[in-house]
């Protein structure tokens, strides 16, 4: 851009093209003439051609731009926040949740509830865990606060159901034990940042 152009402060006329638009006809004859002119000119097919071409591609060349939902689904971002998943420990297969109750506490729509007890292995056992998806706003705080990366958001966004309860029990969200190998770590809210090691000071350990 040259300096001259900066000096031209008359922005109103800058590189605008004035369209040659005719005045809207007022008389009956004039209006009729406009309709006839637009119909016969064939401008309609300029736009329709694109549609027809893509239809042809889809029908005969098997080259389609939309997907056949629900038979097909688009891949979603790993950070997408849909129905929660409960992860397992990869080594033992035991669920990761330690029942600390932080997700229950932080939940801003107050939809997580859990019952816990002292079990025979002297650990805190989660006896029951529910998320009320009628209230959940998928904010991701529960996943962020979870110290064990046990509750994360999954990709299951289809939440229409006859009963919301059908998603909400612990077992429903838990990785099936036979699918343990397919269990993926979650990169979204609450995941450990890639440079976590650089930002913490390590506690010395004697063993």
């Amino acid at each position: 851009m040259s300096l001259e152009e900066f000096k031209n402060r008359n922005t109103g006329q800058q590189s605008y093209k004035m369209l040659d638009i005719k005045h809207t006809p007022q008389s009956g004859i004039g209006k009729f003439g406009q309709v006839v002119e637009r119909t016969v000119k064939g401008e309609l097919f300029v736009g329709l051609w694109v549609t027809l071409r893509e239809m042809g591609n889809a029908l005969f060349k098997d080259n389609m731009h939309t997907i056949k939902y629900p038979l097909e689904k688009l891949p979603i971002s790993p950070r997408y926040r849909a129905i929660h998943d409960m992860l397992r420990l990869l080594e033992s297969g035991h669920y990761r949740c330690i029942g600390c109750g932080l997700c229950e506490k932080i939940c801003i729509s107050d939809c997580i509830k859990m019952d816990t007890k002292y079990d025979e292995n002297q650990r805190k056992e989660v006896t029951e865990y529910t998320i009320n998806f009628g209230r959940c706003i998928f904010c991701g705080y529960c996943a962020e606060v979870c110290p064990e990366l046990a509750i994360v958001h999954g990709g299951r966004y289809e939440t229409a159901s006859e009963q919301r309860a059908s998603f909400s029990l612990f077992e429903d969200m838990l990785t099936p034990i036979d699918a343990l190998k397919q269990q993926k770590e979650y990169d979204g809210f609450g995941a450990v940042s890639p440079n976590a090691d650089d930002t913490i000071k390590q506690t010395p350990l004697a063993y």
């Binding site: 064990e148 010395p204 350990l205 004697a206």
Partner: peptide, 29 residues
Amino acid sequence: GVCDQSGECELQNYTLELAVDSQSYMIPD
């Protein structure tokens, strides 16, 4: 993670109060 004091803990409180942000000692547990 799990403790019945759940945050009403004087150990946590005093650690924060006295601004302990690193550990200099260790011994086998």
